[in-house]
Amino acid sequence: MVASADSLDKYLRTIKQFPVLTPEEEYRYASQLKESGDLEAARALIVSHLRLVASIARGYSGYGLPQSDLIQEGNIGLMKAVKRFDPDRGVRLVSFAMHWIKAEIHEYIVRNWRLVKTATTKAQRKLFFNLRSMKQGFESLSQDDVQRIATELNVKPEEVTEMEYRLNGQEISLDAQVDDDGEEVYSPIAFLEDEGPEPSTLLENLQNEHLQTEGLSMALQQLDDRSRRVLQARWLTESGTSTLHELAAEFNVSAERIRQIEQKAMQKIKSFMLESK
């Protein structure tokens, strides 16, 4: 991985020393990784494609972000691709990995190019990475240009206009500035209130949630199999709550009997949770 911008030249020289795998070698390593999780096989696949990452990252140098960081993010995408690669699909890793590498670099650029996110939807991301190269000159887009770009990228004309405005807008620092007299000037950050809970409160909430979840699991273990099944089917399933009549048919009893079992089980759960506090 890339440690810093200062080591970039050394890193680029180093990765050139790793040999490119033949199709047979790539298939063998990928099969070993898929079948047995062989980490050495994963390493061989990764290092043989580091030059691909560096080449792709070079194409995003116009965003003013450190090249070493772009390569670092691209390497993360490469590792994700290697983990998901299936050699039996008849596609070379280089073709499969390009999507993951670019996706990771795109995500990094969107997160860091401006403090306030510029592109969040799919259409905005498409415009973010293509609009500047599609503009002819530095003048504002004409209505014809807007329509042409919208058609080519399959987005709405108003989305093209909005992205042009965002890309041409000036950034405002959130941090406090100091004027010529040495006085601190109020900046936007002075008016931004964090309405979220404090870290201590957040930690306490997470701990309470964990204890409640753990307590519920222990309480369920105190029930007999039928009572536990009824409660889970009625309240603790993500696939849809079972009705009383459905459970009645499953256990060959009346719906009223299932309601009684449910009510009694709920009382036991409540008592156990109160005693555990």
Rank of each mutant, 00 (worst) to 15 (best):
P87R: 06
L115P: 00
A248E: 00
I15D: 00
R13Q: 12
K102W: 01
R257H: 14
S187D: 12
A42Y: 07
E275Y: 08
W235E: 13
D194S: 07
Q222I: 09
A248P: 07
V185I: 08
S61R: 09
R166P: 03
V160R: 00
Y11A: 10
L21Q: 03
A190F: 09
M98I: 01
K126E: 12
L247S: 11
H106T: 02
F191K: 08
M1G: 15
R259H: 14
L174Y: 04
T14F: 05
N252L: 11
M98V: 01
K264E: 09
P188C: 15
I15F: 01
P188T: 05
S31F: 02
Y63V: 08
T120V: 14
G240A: 10
Y27M: 15
L127E: 07
F85V: 06
T213W: 12
V110S: 04
E246C: 07
F129E: 08
E164C: 11
N252Q: 15
G77W: 04
Y11S: 03
V91P: 01
E104S: 06
L21C: 08
F18I: 03
A81W: 01
S55L: 03
P197G: 12
R226I: 15
E238K: 12
L244F: 11
S242G: 01
E26N: 00
K80P: 02
E162G: 09
A190G: 13
L65V: 03
H99D: 07
Y29F: 10
L231Q: 05
E238W: 03
E24R: 14
A265Q: 07
G90E: 07
E35K: 14
K270Y: 06
E26R: 01
F251A: 14
E73H: 13
W235S: 09
G62L: 05
W100S: 04
D180P: 05
S242P: 06
E35L: 09
V146E: 08
K83L: 08
L192P: 03
D86P: 11
M134I: 10
R51G: 07
Q221A: 07
R58F: 06
E107S: 11
L202M: 04
K277G: 12
